[in-house]
Design a protein around this nucleic acid. Structure first.
Length: 429
RNA sequence: GCCCCGGUAGUGUAGCGGCCUAUCAUACGGGCCUGUCGAGCCCGUGACCCGGGUCCAAAUCCCGGCCGGGGCGCCA
């Protein structure tokens, strides 16, 4: 199908005949002329039909909102349309008619409930400001991928159906796997570490992660997209450098491609300055205790306490040196103080984005860490085995794509950054 | 998992024991006007989540269910 995007017609100031394919957002039939407000994925335009010039103009005026048409015509530069482009129609083909009334208006003056929007996501995302979120998400991920590619990472895909009962953290969804019981993986953690033993050295993965947690918040999902990396011959400082640079490149890419649209829809994202500040868990604990709240060594920060820290640090920063008791078994204890770990959380204002660490690479220490955490090492033989025949020191992190977009764009709910969110109650659509 | 809140036309709402044959906006249908662009004006269609209960009387109060919103916890 030959067509031009509305944005290209504007950008290239096309003089001659153009073909556009669009959704009808509104029709206004006047005495001598019919105006259509139309929309494609790139933008909005006005289509003008001079009465008496099209044999199907009656039919077109009667079309319901959101019907799809193809228009052949020329840009009338004298038209005073507020949309900036006005195509005078020479021919209009009806590609598909919409039913009415719509389950959800695309440009209605009142915003529908989020539940209604999610139930009718196919229309919701026709709204340019909603579509923009996913364009941003894609572009940012593209920037991150380009960065990893430039750093000699390879993109990998680890299994999402796994046998391990638990890694000691989140609950897993179980699935029937023929005669066996299996689970949906909550993270590629164990597999990407094994890849370090494979000698692949630098890997990243973008894929789904599943958590069977009954949380009910605006920042958790039961299925989300995890960006994971793992790097050999690296420690937590190397991992933090990769993280801040990955975010910088993602944001740069986002701004280079979408800043106009972001501005138009009130999404403001600052350029990222690296390196991010590093503050220790102990420093944070002091801030909180100084603010009159009590936080014992080994306790996690509550949302209220994170605000205290966030008030002190704007934008991105790392909280480092977390207590060993708070971190998963694979986290490397500090050689000089085993009560602490070579680990970090990435924060944005008062919001937690992600965590990472240098990993344990010595199999004896790893087994001991399993036992410390009350886990049975024998259930993780497939994992520990990879540590016994030459596992290099390594480090890595994972970051939730949707949460990153939510935080950067200041969205009120992580579901806004998810096409078809899976939460405590929703599995349709 | 704990706690709070809510479910009224396609959409978003007002009403919170009798004045409700239920408000307003928008959408939808019809008419008028009209180079419009949140078009304007007039007319019309369209709804109290489900099941019990209390009461002379329930959209309104009570109980249960279903569905949803949010906070906390949990969370690699």
């Amino acid at each position: 199908m030959q067509r031009s995007l509305i944005s290209d017609i504007i950008a290239n100031d096309i003089e001659g005949e153009v073909n556009i394919a669009v959704w009808i957002q509104d029709t206004r039939s006047l005495k001598n002329v019919i105006f259509l407000t139309v929309r494609d994925t790139s933008g909005m335009a006005q289509v003008t039909i001079r009465k008496g010039t099209l044999d199907n103009e009656e039919k077109i005026v009667g079309l319901n909102r959101e019907s799809v048409i193809a228009v052949k015509g020329k840009w009338d530069r004298k038209s005073a349309s507020k949309l900036g482009v006005d195509i005078v129609a020479e021919k209009i083909e009806i590609l598909n008619e919409s039913l009415a009334p719509l389950p959800l208006g695309v440009d209605d003056p009142v915003e529908a409930d989020f539940d209604t929007r999610l139930n009718n996501r196919f229309i919701d995302i026709r709204k340019p400001e909603k579509a923009l979120i996913f364009q941003i998400e894609s572009t940012m991920l593209w920037g991150i991928r380009k960065f990893f590619n430039s750093q000699e990472f390879i993109e990998v895909h680890t299994p999402k159906i796994v046998a391990a009962a638990t890694e000691g953290g989140a609950d897993l969804f179980s699935v029937k796997y023929f005669e066996k019981e299996a689970y949906l993986n909550q993270s590629p953690q164990l597999y990407k570490e094994i890849l370090m033993s494979c000698g692949l050295d630098r890997v990243f993965e973008v894929g789904p992660a599943f958590r069977a947690e009954q949380h009910n918040t605006t920042r958790h999902l039961n299925e989300f997209t995890s960006i994971d990396i793992e790097v050999s011959f690296a420690d937590h400082n190397d991992a933090m450098a990769f993280l801040e640079n990955a975010i910088k490149h993602g944001v740069d890419e986002m701004l280079s491609r979408h800043s106009d649209q972001m501005e138009k829809h009130g999404i403001h994202v600052d350029r990222v300055k690296t390196p991010f500040p590093r503050i220790t868990y102990e420093e944070c604990r002091k801030l909180i205790n100084d603010a009159g709240m009590n936080l014992e060594f080994g306790d996690d920060f509550s949302p209220e306490q994170l605000k205290v820290i966030g008030n002190k640090f704007n934008g991105f920063y790392f909280i480092i040196d977390w207590p060993s008791s708070m971190r998963p078994f694979y986290t490397m204890p500090k050689p000089e103080d085993p009560a602490l770990t070579n680990s970090f959380d990435l924060q944005f204002n008062e919001l937690e984005i992600t965590s990472g660490a240098q990993r344990v690479h010595n199999p004896e220490i790893l087994e001991k860490r399993f036992l410390d955490k009350g886990l049975n090492p024998s259930e993780f033989d497939f994992y520990i085995k990879a540590f016994k025949y030459g596992m290099p020191p390594h480090a890595g992190w994972a970051i939730g794509l949707e949460r990153l977009v939510m935080i950067l764009c200041g969205l009120p709910n992580i579901r806004e950054a998810t096409l078809f969110p899976r939460d405590r109650t929703r599995i349709v659509p």
